[in-house]
């Protein structure tokens, strides 16, 4: 099977699974995990977009001629995007996990429907 197609299917499955978990699971930590799964799916989509069958790594290789290199290089832009997105996602997750610790200390439960009830 084509590697790129397989990664796209995996990414789609990850996003759908993550959305399912986000909307239907009641546990705060599991919701946060689901969010992290969504963002992994998005990252995988981006990386798979720049994939090229038998391509070179997009770093400068002195032994390869530039013309050949530029023809066979993988697309480097999505990789830069993914790096940035991982950092943003990590900071979001850190804040959310810190807040869920605060809520757990107060309510002694992780149920979202209890912690975030109407007020």
């Amino acid at each position: 099977m084509d590697l790129q197609l397989a990664s796209f299917i995996t990414a789609g499955a990850l996003v759908v699974l993550g959305l399912y978990g986000f909307f239907f699971v009641d546990n705060v930590i599991k919701k946060i995990i689901a969010l992290s799964i969504i963002s992994s799916g998005v990252n995988l989509t981006l990386v798979a977009m720049g994939y090229r069958e038998g391509g070179y790594v997009p770093i400068y290789i002195p032994t390869v001629e530039f013309q050949v290199f530029s023809k066979h290089m993988a697309y480097p832009l999505p990789q830069a995007l993914v790096l940035t997105n991982i950092v943003i996602g990590a900071s979001m997750l850190a804040v959310m996990l810190a807040l869920s610790i605060v809520f757990y200390r107060k309510y002694r439960t992780l149920k979202t429907s209890v912690i975030l009830k109407e007020d």
Partner: peptide, 8 residues
């Protein structure tokens, strides 16, 4: 986080 991932 959900909406941001979808936007990305």
């Amino acid at each position: 986080t959900m909406a941001g991932s979808i936007l990305l």
